[in-house]
Amino acid sequence: MKFERLAIPEIVKITPARFGDNRGYFSEVFKDEWFRQNVADTSFVQDNQSLSATAGTIRGLHFQLDPFAQGKLVRCIAGAIFDVAVDIRVGSPSFGRWVGVELTADNGDQLWIPPGFAHGFATLTSDCVILYKVTAPYSAAHDRGLLWNDPDIGIDWPVAVDGAVLSDKDMKQPRLADLPPSFAY
């Protein structure tokens, strides 16, 4: 496996090796010891999977408060997404900044997003299936969000704003300027 720290160094893109022949390929997509040594010394408690049927669907930006703050290891197992992390750690030199990468079933890349970041993605194709490991279980009482198109953050989403498919919840999230402090750097 290879890894690359992105412009916000806590966000890590992981590229598992693929070994292929005329039948297809084999890939180890997660190794606990390797992950702990190279990315983050953490444990995962749950795997989640989502299907987004329509290209142009945006899910996010989501996070959970302590003690249920989640780190996420995200990969796309069908289709293609633009995956985004926004630093919401008060006092961080990258507070309010974002990074994004394209995760596809073809490239096999994964994105590590630690606690302290809001996460979201846009589907680039129809029938996208996302599989992600999390470091804490879901807690409705600790679930929070950030407005996906906050102009102060300025995410360069690869979908037309007027054509984005969103949940009612995601359309009503607060802007960063209105978000109560959630994490400290």
Rank of each mutant, 00 (worst) to 15 (best):
118 A>D: 08
8 I>K: 08
152 D>L: 09
89 R>L: 07
77 I>T: 14
174 P>E: 05
124 L>F: 02
92 S>L: 11
71 G>N: 01
19 F>C: 08
158 P>W: 08
167 S>L: 02
61 L>K: 05
110 Q>W: 03
10 E>H: 03
142 H>N: 15
8 I>H: 10
167 S>P: 05
145 G>F: 03
145 G>I: 00
44 F>S: 05
121 F>L: 12
87 D>C: 04
57 T>G: 10
35 F>C: 09
143 D>R: 08
75 R>W: 09
3 F>C: 06
81 I>R: 10
169 K>P: 01
121 F>I: 01
141 A>D: 15
22 N>R: 15
42 T>V: 15
60 G>M: 07
128 C>K: 01
153 I>V: 13
34 W>S: 05
140 A>V: 03
129 V>Q: 14
103 L>K: 12
103 L>D: 11
123 T>R: 03
54 T>I: 14
158 P>L: 11
149 N>Y: 01
11 I>Y: 07
49 Q>N: 12
107 N>T: 11
78 A>E: 13
80 A>H: 05
4 E>V: 07
111 L>W: 07
131 L>R: 15
100 G>T: 07
31 K>M: 09
76 C>H: 06
68 F>I: 00
7 A>N: 12
74 V>I: 15
102 E>W: 01
6 L>E: 06
47 D>C: 08
80 A>D: 11
172 K>V: 02
3 F>P: 00
46 Q>G: 12
105 A>F: 01
109 D>F: 11
10 E>W: 00
89 R>S: 02
31 K>Y: 04
39 V>G: 02
179 L>T: 09
165 V>Q: 12
90 V>T: 13
63 F>G: 05
51 L>P: 00
83 D>M: 10
169 K>F: 07
155 I>S: 08
52 S>V: 04
1 M>D: 07
127 D>C: 05
160 A>W: 00
85 A>N: 02
62 H>T: 03
142 H>L: 14
41 D>R: 14
32 D>C: 03
28 E>L: 09
115 P>G: 04
161 V>P: 02
109 D>V: 00
149 N>M: 08
79 G>H: 02
37 Q>W: 00
59 R>T: 07
68 F>T: 11
68 F>Q: 14
87 D>E: 04
115 P>R: 13
121 F>S: 06
114 P>W: 01
27 S>G: 06
93 P>E: 12
153 I>E: 01
105 A>E: 14
168 D>N: 14
55 A>D: 00
